[in-house]
Amino acid sequence: MIRLANVAHDYGGRALLTGIDLHIAPGAFHFLTGPSGAGKSTLLKLCYGELRPVQGEIELFGQSLRGMSRDALADMRRRIGVIHQDCQFLDHLTLAENVALPFVATGRPVPQTDLRELLAWVGLAGQAESLPPTLSGGERQRAALARAVIMSPEVVLADEPTGNVDAEMSQRLLSLLVELNRMGTAVMIATHDLALIRNAKAQVSARVLRIQDRTLQSAGADL
């Protein structure tokens, strides 16, 4: 679904990633790890087209990112759910409205039953009418997950989804993502939380990728 071939990226001439080859297949479960500043977020952004590579080819659902129009890219976001590190909500809208935003932003009617079920699934049915700034870190992360999956995407990309929550909450988030993966959604989680990865490996066959020395390596054995 998402394919990167010999991709390189840099910020202002300082090389960050080189020679990246990656293929996210339907139903796959990937972890992306590596030290802070190694380029995990950058790699995720390349995967959903927010950044364009300096070198190499990126294919989203069989279409080359190069030459893809802004509208086509926007439409592609319906098939890729993204959970940002800092969630990124619209603070003047309620939680339910934020979760339903992908429908509103694409001019479709909001399926109220699905929305209620989804909020119940992430355990936020009671907070539907709260404004995002009043929520705790864990609630915000679960809301971000709900927003990422409301359009039933084929792949979910999560950037440090457990960065600001305690161990119990990260377990809960992980089990939601594992559940999603069992229903057929491909998942890629960028994290440096090794405990999270170990827990996941007990529940799902996950592949662990590590960014080291600007390249992507398989890191399955040492965990």
């Binding site: 976001r77 993204v82 932003a105």
Partner: peptide, 16 residues
């Protein structure tokens, strides 16, 4: 600008 970023993130087209 943050609102615009969020809207792009959830798949809003420029026209929207």
């Amino acid at each position: 600008a943050p609102v615009i970023r969020v809207l792009r993130l959830v798949g809003a087209r420029d026209a929207f």
